[in-house]
């Protein structure tokens, strides 16, 4: 197995709110390998963003708080570091791009300066050198007339252009991991493709690992090596793209798939059409969180905390149906795993 660049282990994140404590992330583990892309999929509000933001130290504290877990970057636990120490890794070893590039860039600073800033603080470059490097980076992200563009402000850029600039900014220091939180959701289909293509090319050149958060299973198919399916603050299934897509092990993954009209790329249907709503994260159920919506739910699912089952290849699923004593007849296409693993 290739080395894990970023390894998240049993991460738990809560938020204090007026209504009580929201358990946004409830024991998430996933990892990404060098040069590989991990796609994280799941319904809106399931905790995808909170997971990555908490390892980047971006969740507001308070009200947010990491209660448990590790985020190992090459063996260094980012979560146990002081803010000052972890700042060094941010932007240098882990780059991040966000969904809405327009609002994610400072409107009163030139694009060039914003790219240069990362280089200045992490590489100790002078502003001039950093700006020169910024031109290269914009070139790299295929923005025409880069030397002119760096003097412009975000409002002078188009959406796709901005997302490229954002990418240029996040890869400025050649990070080992690039986290892209729905990088293309706000873009036109054609532009979307170009941006994804760009990311792929850059990955090939720089050999970085990518965590790609998306709603779009088409994007997953195109980009990802591995997939983690998230539901209500937990990873319910993970494995390679093939395993998760073609040998789906969890009823939720099946639901996701069937909710999509087709596996065609370019389809942009959201993941909203599974019947029912996700559970209340103020007070998550004792048993499996998907029980209420699961067509194959059993009595056991409601009451007992569900365990994780995994295949030899590393395909993992959190569902009682994989238990060897579970009735086979409930649903057809479920993969049966041999042993349970907690």
């Amino acid at each position: 197995m290739a080395e894990k660049v970023l390894d998240i282990q049993n991460l738990k994140v809560e938020f204090d709110t007026h209504g009580g404590i929201v358990q946004a992330v409830r024991g998430v583990s996933y990892s990404v390998e060098k040069g590989k892309t991990l796609a994280v999929v799941g319904e809106s509000g399931c905790g995808k963003s909170v997971t990555v933001q908490s390892i980047m130290g971006l969740i507001p504290k308070p009200p947010g708080r990491v209660t448990q877990g590790k985020a190992l970057l090459n063996g260094v636990d980012l979560l146990s570091l002081s803010d000052k120490e972890s700042r060094q890794y941010r932007g240098r070893d882990i780059g991040m791009i966000f969904q809405d590039a327009m609002s994610s860039l400072n409107p009163t600073m030139t694009v060039g300066e914003q790219i240069a800033e990362t280089l200045q603080i992490h590489k100790g470059m002078s502003k001039q050198d950093a700006l020169k490097k910024a031109v290269n980076l914009l070139d790299l992200t295929r923005i025409p007339e880069a030397h002119k563009r760096i003097k412009q402000y975000p409002f002078e850029f188009s959406g796709g252009m901005l997302q490229r600039a954002m990418i240029a900014m996040s890869i400025a220091c050649k990070p080992q991991v690039l986290i892209a939180d729905e990088p293309t959701t706000a873009l036109d289909v054609t532009v979307q493709d170009q941006v994804l293509e760009l990311m792929k090319d850059l990955q090939r050149e720089e050999g970085m690992a990518i965590i790609l958060i998306t709603h779009d299973l088409g994007v997953v198919a195109k980009m990802a090596d591995d997939v983690a399916v998230m539901y209500a603050g937990e990873i319910v299934e993970s494995g390679t793209v093939d395993e998760v897509f073609y040998k789906s092990a969890h009823p939720y993954t099946l639901g996701l798939k069937s909710a999509m009209p087709s596996m065609e790329r370019n389809s942009h249907t959201g993941l909203v059409s599974i019947d029912g709503t996700p559970p209340d994260l103020f007070n998550p159920p004792q048993g499996c969180a998907y029980t209420a919506r699961c067509p194959a739910a059993m009595k056991l699912c409601r009451s007992r905390k569900v365990e994780i089952f995994s295949s030899e290849s590393g395909h993992r699923s959190q569902c009682w149906l994989h238990h060897k004593e579970a009735p086979v007849s409930v649903t057809a296409p479920i993969n049966r795993f041999s042993g349970a693993e907690v």
């Binding site: 971006l58 000052k84 700042r87 932007g91 780059g95 400072n106 800033e117």
Partner: peptide, 18 residues
């Protein structure tokens, strides 16, 4: 403070003064 570009700045590793 709650805007997206400040979050971006944090993600770049800037300290709070910067």
């Amino acid at each position: 403070i709650n805007s997206d570009f400040v979050r971006t700045a944090k993600a770049k590793g800037l300290n709070s003064w910067q």
